[in-house]
């Protein structure tokens, strides 16, 4: 059902883009912007894909961990925070600096490690 509906919509859009150069240009601009954001996002995702803050914290010295976290960019650190649910209260502002993000992640990893150590003795 939905496939048919979408097919109909795209048919109209395709026909309009072919007949209307101005519409085609605006469509290209919109898609181009999306592609840029998409590439950026995917690049950041793949940069942090193999990084798990809680596992890394256990396998590193505190200084080593801080150094490791510091290597990531602010958008990458934001992804780490989101993926591993490191800001459950939403205290980090959308424009938090890289320094603040690093500090937040280090603190969260320290707290989690301490909590897990207790859980093993549950």
């Amino acid at each position: 059902m939905i496939e048919k509906a979408l097919g109909g919509v795209f048919k109209v859009v395709t026909a309009e883009a072919a007949a209307n150069p101005a519409f085609a240009r605006r469509l290209e601009d919109a898609l181009g912007k999306f592609a840029e954001d998409y590439v950026e996002r995917r690049k950041a995702e793949s940069a942090v894909a193999n990084f798990h803050p809680f596992i890394a914290f256990r396998n590193e010295t505190p200084e080593g961990f801080r150094k490791q976290v510091g290597k990531f960019s602010a958008p990458e650190l934001r992804l780490v925070v989101a993926k591993h649910h490191l800001d459950p209260s939403g205290v980090l502002k959308a424009r938090a600096t890289k320094k603040a993000l690093v500090e937040h992640i280090v603190t969260a990893a320290e707290k989690r490690a301490a909590r897990d150590a207790k859980l093993f003795e549950y």
Binding site: H52, F54, R58, A82, K83, H84, D116
Partner: peptide
């Protein structure tokens, strides 16, 4: 579910 992915990695580690 990103959280599932994160917790699953942690489980595998522990």
């Amino acid at each position: 579910n990103a959280l599932h992915e994160s917790e699953a990695a942690l489980l595998r580690d522990q």
